[in-house]
Each structure stands twice: as C-alpha cells, then as structure tokens.
Amino acid sequence: MSAGFLLDLHRCVGCGACVLACRIENGRVTTAAWRRVLPLNLRRYDAGPTYFLSVACHHCDEPACLRGCPSGAYEKRPDGIVIHHEERCLGCRYCEMTCPFGAPQYDANRGVMSKCHLCARRVDAGRAPACVAACPTEALTFAADVDTVNAGSEEPADIESDRIAETRRYVPGFTDPAGCRPNLRFITPAGSTRTARFDALAGRLRP
C-alpha cells in the first residue's frame, strides 16, 4: 500500500489553510512548517497557468531519508507512511541532504530532525490528516493507496495541452530527481477543457 496525498490543481487556491492546520496539529512538537505552498507563475504570464503546489512529505516508496539515515530513525510502515522517530535521531542532517523535496527539517532548538508523519495517529483512528480536513476547497485529499486512483502516465504533464482531468505523477514544478517514487498525485487543471467547451458552445450560439 502507498498512502499519500492527491492535490487537485484546479481546486487549490494556495490559501495556506493546510499549512496552518499542520501547525495547529503539530505545533507543540515543532516550529517547523512541515507543509508548504509553492506558487507557480504568480506573475501570471499568459504562456502558462498559475497554480499552487501544496507539499509536505510524500511518503515515498523509496524514501531517500530512510536510505540516508545512519541511525535507523526512519520507519516505512506497511501502509506506506514514513515515520521519523525522534528518539533515535542523531541530528546529523543526512536526511535533509538526501531528500530532494526538503521534507525533513532541522530543529536547531532541539538538535533533531522532524517531518510530516501524515498525521498517522489521525489516520489510524480513521480520520483525515489535519491539512486535508482543513482544506476549504477540498483540493487536497488523502488516499490510502494513491495508485488505485492514479490513472496518469509516468510522463511529465504538459498542463497547457491537457484536455481531460487525470491524475499525474509529475507536473511542471514537481519532479522526482532521485527516484524516490513519491506518493503525491496531481489532478491537473481542467480549465482549458472548459474554455474550449465554452468556445465551442459560444461558436454554435453566435448569431
């Protein structure tokens, strides 16, 4: 099983509610921002769409953090969630170097790393992760197995040319340079579809 996140790039408005919900849920553990929102094309150049990548740990199938950890602080659970065990952490920061996504973050006050644990306790209790529960547009969702919802290809998506909404592994701004097989899937914008549809409709209606 590969637990992870689905992000609908059409519904996400980059509001940051997920970031704040993560801080409420985990704020007593860390001051680090485990979840971040990366805006793309905020200058809104006409050549491309503006969208937002809400990212945290991707609970990879081949977690670089785990591979790079000399003290065995990382655990890959059977459901796919990657847990960092703080009590085993040396604070050597190797995982910070090996993770290509910047998920593990160093807490200088306590001398250890920390990262998103996919709200494992909430998930175990049948609840959505805090970021997912808070998303006001329901753009971010949790999947117990992202592959059962993944109809997309391995090829990076060319969002401009998309004509149907489908899940993608990679979009401009998000790739997998180290072969970690991250468990984040994107539902790509269908706005251009609707635009095309509207144009077709309008063409028929034009007097």
Binding site: C15, G16, A17, V19, L20, A21, R23, I24, E25, G27, A130, A133, A134, C135, P136, E138
Partner: peptide, 27 residues
C-alpha cells in the same frame, strides 16, 4: 489550549472547513 479548529458542517454554506484566518485563531 486550542488543539483543533474545524468547520461546523451544520452551517451548510461554509461546510466542514474554515479558512486560514479561522485556523490562525489558534495562534
């Protein structure tokens, strides 16, 4: 201490979510 802020699903306009500002009340 505030440990969670959720939307009230009984308000069928705003549904089960607040926004980042509503969440920021915890801070």
């Amino acid at each position: 201490q505030i440990v969670e802020i959720d939307g009230d699903p009984e308000n069928t306009a705003t549904g089960g979510h607040v926004c980042l500002k509503g969440l920021s009340y915890a801070r």
